[in-house]
Amino acid sequence: MSVGDYIRDSQIWKSVFRHPAPYDRRNRVVVMLTNFFLHLHPVSIKQQGIALSYTWCMGGITFFLFLVETITGVLLMFYYRPTLEWAFNDILALRDVTTLGIMREIHRWGAHAMVITVWLHMYRVFLTGSYKPPREFNWVVGVILLKLTLLLSFTGYLLPWDQLAIWAITVGSNMARATPVLGHEGPGFQFLNLGGYDLITNASDARFLLLGSRFVGEETLNRFYILHCVAIPLAAAGLIAIHFWRVRKDGGISQPL
């Protein structure tokens, strides 16, 4: 009996994997049903539906990049403090001092790649008409996920606290000043007025809500940090679960009717 067989025969192994390795047809079916990670998939699937020239694999790569970003992101959090005093220096240290500081590169390039793959996934889904009934709602979920991906990338852009970061966010968040009715430089803000006092000022408008301050400062850094590391990833993870669930429930990967 080889060592491999000994391990596979042990009680521990069998308690984790509840069936023999997927060598034969029966076990290839069982593995899909009993493994938590694999049960996202159906047991069998249309041959053309998984052809790379049909799916482009972009949705899958996007999800994988989401996982890569989560893991590298958690690792980066060990060395990063979101304060004016430390943010920039911590990134500098990640680059120059930390062993395997390449995590930051992987995190940033992975984020760029994720934006591109999520666009291409949408492009493919549109071009194959896969948003058509019965998959309308899943397309809507997908659009929200696209928006969340962009927001994740956008909030992360501020964290290095360098010139690139602060000005990209300043330009981006200044648009919120101009929100109709709710921005202090937007059309119609005068309508929210109580006894001659404007309710919407630069310390109470939509931009202030986003920044937690009247200009991009430490409160903003903190807010974006929380949005980037906790709030948006949680929302995205929930929606991804719904997105996958609906792929299965709406009839699996789209195919000619």
Binding site: S204, S213, G217, E219
Partner: peptide, 9 residues
Amino acid sequence: FMFPNVLVE
């Protein structure tokens, strides 16, 4: 809740 009451400026 998301609107802070005190600002350090």
